[in-house]
Write a protein that binds this DNA or RNA. Sequence first.
DNA 1: CGCCTTTATAGTCATGTTGACCATTAAGGG
DNA 2: CCCTTAATGGTCAACATGACTATAAAGGCG
Lengths: 256, 256
Amino acid sequence: MTVRGPRAREGGARGAVPEGYDPHAFEPFAVTVDLAVFTVREGVLHALLIRRGQEPYAGAWALPGGFVLPRESTDLAARRELAEETGLPDDLVAGLHLEQLRTYSDPDRDPRMRVVSVAYTALVPDLPEPHGGGDAAHAEWVAFGSYGHLAFDHAEILADARERIGAKLEYTCLATSFCPPEFTLGELQQVYETVWGTVLDRPNFRRKVLATPGFVEQVAGASRLTGGRGKPAALHRAGPATALHPPLLRPEGRQT
Amino acid sequence: MTVRGPRAREGGARGAVPEGYDPHAFEPFAVTVDLAVFTVREGVLHALLIRRGQEPYAGAWALPGGFVLPRESTDLAARRELAEETGLPDDLVAGLHLEQLRTYSDPDRDPRMRVVSVAYTALVPDLPEPHGGGDAAHAEWVAFGSYGHLAFDHAEILADARERIGAKLEYTCLATSFCPPEFTLGELQQVYETVWGTVLDRPNFRRKVLATPGFVEQVAGASRLTGGRGKPAALHRAGPATALHPPLLRPEGRQT
DNA sequence: CGCCTTTATAGTCATGTTGACCATTAAGGG
DNA sequence: CCCTTAATGGTCAACATGACTATAAAGGCG
């Protein structure tokens, strides 16, 4: 990029800084981050949302987020907002997978002023309620799709995020981010089924996961009853691998 | 996102607009677009670059790009800048594949002021020189890697863009964007080999491409000599398909 | 004109992965 | 003690892939 007043394009080479350039001379852009945070709860995909109190869109759900501070990268702002708005412990937030989705910049996406927003996606395991008890935690888990109209263009962001995550599950080991530190292969499979909205064959899923070196590691000796019924499942934890080669493709290109 | 002065975070619910909010009250962010435009020329990947005339980074190569105008989305800004800086005909630019890469926001990425830049990637066929003759076309094709230090964080952007494109070739039909309207399968294969920096088996590549419905369509009757020598190749054009199922994976996860 | 080189195109074959199954094991519930 | 449930262990055919070999059609060259 180049610093140059937006109206100062006199055909010069890119990078010309007009003398006397004044950052305050034109209507500024506000830069914000929006967070599309997902978890899987009892087999249902949930997003972290906040109920808006003010116009516009008062009463509607909205994504957590906020302004990028003057000396902050958007990555940092996203992590800070996530910690603030969820009340999750800092060390947990520090370890979360947080990924830039894309930037939304329609001039009219906020009716009040020009706001360019960088959207991020995070995957978190099913946690106790997000309120940490402090004043900053108003976020709630809402089942995907079971909200009315979201504020601003947040419905589009959330849909894009879900699609991106679904795609990433195919060729990365990201699914373990949805799981607690120790999990069963059945729980891991449910992550895939929930995000993709499909049903997978259990033995085949198992075969694929175990055949990928470093995807999961078996926890020696431990096992857990899935809820009382059935044979207890072996516990696993996430392995060091991050990519899935070859990918685990979702059956036929259908979405939910 | 939400409109709220960056220092106005008094623990209120997200979306609180402090009364008397003044968009000019704080140091504004500048928002720009940067373009990572690639083509394949004689088997070598080239990027579209501009030679900087001013400090900082005077004399260094930089990506084309510029400010987002007050009433413009970044998508629109990217396409406008591409047309302006390359001098390519508008209708050609309108049809190009232009994709948002990601947003770069390090507070110090521009030493002069706070600039958040949304990077875009475009793939274009090998065209005559980019200068349209007008004053606006200073961009030049430079072989990938054969430049010194790029200005700002543009080296990182360009590397990210190349990696993204390489990945997209695996599971989309995007490779045809690098080719002229009619092309041989050998030319298409060279796109893959150039971007990936690998060599592919010709019969296998051919089998895979032809087995994917809608990837390419044979142009009836036509054929072209590849340069005089050898059997003339059948001509193809891009088909309606956009995704590649199953993907065409690059051999072993090595980069150039 | 014939032979060599070059490039496109057509197969072949062994291997690995996937999808669709069936079988067994280990728990809880009546 | 049998039934249900869920995890786990297999089989088998279809398909996709990687490594090759073979043929066809052009130009170059003696």
